[in-house]
Design a protein around this nucleic acid. Structure first.
Length: 470
RNA sequence: GGCCCCAUCGUCUAGUGGUCCAGGACGUCGGGUUCUCAUCCCGAAAAUCGCGGGUUCGACUCCCGCUGGGGUCACCA
C-alpha cells in the first residue's frame, strides 16, 4: 500500500476552527499517524466574499494548541506547496480547460438573472432546481465570446441516466443516479475554483490517499467521483464521518452551542480532555475505557469502527472528563503549569501560583483539584472576596466575634487543628453554623476546606478578610 | 419536496444469530464519608433494542416496508 496521506481543508471564513472540524482533524490526524503517514492541512480560501482576515492564522494556531500537528501546511510548506488554494489558481484553470477539451465540462455564459428565473420556474413546478445545460452546445461560439471579454464559468457536464456508486469505509456502498447530479460550476467567473474542482485537483496533486470528512459532503461526492473519472485519476478512499449535533439533533451550530475550538481553551478545558472526549464521538475504546491519551487512540482507532449515527455534543460529559484530567490525570506540577499559563494575565491568581513555599502551593492545589472541572473555576476558589456594601448587623457581630477568637491564636499555633477547634468553639458558643463562618471568611457559600485554606492564607490575610465586615 | 445517510437507556456508547427479560460511562435520584462545597464509596431508577413484516430451530444482531431524525439540493465551503 502506498503511503497514507490525509488532510483537512478548512476555509478561513469564521472566527476560528469549528469544533466539528477539530473532530475531523483529530480523526484524520490519528488515522495518518496510525499508518505512519502524513497529515496535511490545506486552506480552501476560494470564496472571496466570505473570507475573514486573520482566520487562517487563528485556525492554524488553534490546531497547534490542541496538539494536532500537521506535517505539511501553508505556514510550514511541504513537497506539494503551496497549501493555500488562492496561491494555486493557474492550476485549477488548467485542469478545468482539460475537462472542456475532453467534453466533460463546458463554458457557460448564463446570467444570474436567467439562472434565478430558471430556478424559480423549476421550483414552481416542484422540481429540484438544476441547470438546464443551456450553454452546453455553444462550444464553438464560446471561444469568440470569451475573446470579447464576456464573463463565463465552466460547468461540469454530467451525462444523464447513469447509475454510479462509490465505497465509503464507514457506510459501505453509496449509490446514486447521474440524473440527480447538477452541472455544477467548477470554475467561477472570478477565476477561482469552486470547492468541487479545487478539492479534487488538490487531493489528487497532493496524493491524498484517504478523504476523511464530515457526512455533509456525501451528496457532493458523486460530483467528485465524476471528476476523478473524467481526469482518469485513481479514486482515493472515502470515509464520511458523522456530523456532531446540537442537543436538538441539528448540525452543531454557533447559534445553539459554543463551536469555536479556542472557546473551550478559554473556558479552561484542557486540550487533551477535549480531544479525548471527541475521540468518543462515534467510536469507543475496545476495552470500554473512556480516559486515555491520544497516543492510545492512535493505536486503537480504526476508521471501520466508526459508528455512522450523528452524536450529540454533550458539554456536561466533557466537563466531567475535564475534571478527571484535572484531578486524576495531570500531576500537581502539571496542573500548576497549566494554571500559570491560563492565568498569566491575572495578577492575583498568578501571584498565588508563584507562592515560594511550594509545599503550601501543592497542598492548596490538592484541595482545589477535586472541586474544579475547568481551570477557570480555580479563581472562584482562591480569589479575594468582593467588598460588599451592606452587611446585616448580625453578620457584623459574628465577624467581630470571630476576629477576636482568631486573633487569640498565636502565630506559631496557626495550624489546621487549632483553627478547626476555634471555629467549632465559635459555632458552638455563638449558635451559628460552620457555614456562616465559612461565608464570613471566604465570601462564598462553598469552596476549599476552611482550616486548610486559612493556613494557606496565613493569619494576617485571614483576619483581613473579616475586616470588610466591620 | 427530490435524493442521500442514519436509528440500543435523557446523552455518549458495548453488543456483530443463541452466553442479553441488553453491559459500561455522563447526567438524575437515594445513602455513606465530611468543618462548607466537592471528591471518593455504595445503591437505584432509566432502553418492551423506533414500528411492522419476513428469513431462521432461534433475532438487538440478516432482508423488506414504514415511521422518525439528520444531511444536501449556490459562481459557500
Amino acid at each position: 500500500m502506498t503511503q497514507v496521506r490525509t488532510r483537512i481543508a478548512p476555509s478561513p471564513t469564521g472566527d476560528d476552527i469549528h469544533i466539528g472540524n477539530l473532530y475531523t482533524a483529530l480523526i484524520n490526524f490519528a488515522f495518518a499517524k496510525k499508518h505512519k503517514g502524513k497529515f496535511i492541512i490545506r486552506i480552501e480560501d476560494t470564496d472571496r466574499q466570505r473570507i475573514r482576515e486573520g482566520a487562517q492564522e487563528k485556525i492554524l494556531s488553534s490546531l497547534k494548541s490542541f496538539g494536532i500537528l500537521y506535517d505539511e501546511g501553508p505556514d510550514i510548506g511541504g513537497p506539494f506547496a503551496p497549501y493555500r488554494q488562492s496561491d494555486r489558481l493557474p492550476l485549477y484553470k488548467k485542469y478545468a480547460l482539460e475537462l472542456v477539451e475532453k467534453g466533460a465540462a463546458y463554458y457557460c455564459f448564463c446570467t444570474k438573472e436567467r439562472l434565478e428565473a430558471l430556478r424559480e420556474e423549476q421550483m414552481a413546478m416542484k422540481k429540484t432546481p438544476r441547470y438546464d445545460k443551456h450553454c452546453l452546445h455553444e462550444v464553438k461560439a464560446a471561444k469568440e465570446r470569451i475573446a470579447k471579454n464576456e464573463a463565463y464559468v465552466i460547468r461540469l457536464n454530467v451525462l444523464p441516466d447513469k447509475k454510479m456508486s462509490f465505497q465509503d469505509v464507514i457506510r459501505g456502498e453509496i449509490s446514486f443516479d447521474s440524473n440527480e447530479v447538477d452541472d455544477q460550476v467548477l470554475l467561477k467567473s472570478d477565476g477561482y475554483p469552486t470547492y468541487h474542482l479545487g478539492v479534487v485537483v488538490d487531493d489528487h496533486l497532493m496524493e491524498i490517499s484517504h478523504i476523511i470528512r464530515a457526512e455533509e459532503w456525501i451528496s457532493s461526492t458523486p460530483k467528485h467521483v465524476l471528476l476523478y473519472e473524467s481526469f482518469g485519476w485513481e479514486l482515493p478512499v472515502f470515509a464520511h464521518l458523522p456530523i456532531l449535533r446540537n442537543p436538538d439533533r441539528s448540525k452543531l451550530s454557533k447559534r445553539k452551542n459554543p463551536v469555536w475550538a479556542s472557546w473551550y481553551l478559554e473556558q479552561g478545558f484542557l486540550p487533551e480532555a477535549v480531544l479525548n472526549y471527541l475521540s468518543l464521538m462515534g467510536w469507543s475504546h475496545p476495552e470500554q475505557k473512556e480516559i486515555f491519551p491520544i497516543s492510545e487512540f492512535i493505536k486503537r482507532f480504526d476508521l471501520k469502527d466508526v459508528h455512522p449515527a450523528g452524536p450529540i455534543f454533550d458539554i456536561q460529559k466533557l466537563e466531567w472528563m475535564n475534571g478527571v484530567y484535572i484531578r486524576d490525570v495531570l500531576t500537581t506540577e502539571q496542573l500548576i503549569e497549566r494554571l500559570r499559563q491560563f492565568y498569566r494575565n491575572d495578577e492575583e491568581v498568578h501571584a498565588l501560583l508563584n507562592d515560594t513555599n511550594s509545599k503550601k502551593l501543592f497542598s492548596l492545589l490538592d484541595l482545589a483539584k477535586s472541586r474544579i472541572k475547568t481551570l477557570r473555576e480555580f479563581k472562584d476558589l482562591v480569589a479575594s472576596p468582593q467588598k460588599e456594601e451592606h452587611f446585616e448587623s448580625e453578620q457584623v457581630a459574628s465577624a467581630k466575634a470571630l476576629t477576636v477568637l482568631l486573633s487569640g491564636i498565636g502565630s506559631g499555633m496557626w495550624n489546621e487543628d487549632v483553627i478547626l477547634k476555634h471555629l467549632k468553639t465559635f459555632s458552638k458558643e455563638r449558635g451559628v453554623s460552620m457555614r456562616i463562618a465559612y461565608i464570613l471568611l471566604t465570601g462564598k457559600p462553598q469552596g476549599l476546606p476552611l482550616p486548610q485554606f486559612m493556613v494557606y492564607l496565613g493569619k494576617d490575610a485571614s483576619l483581613k478578610r473579616l475586616e470588610r465586615y466591620v
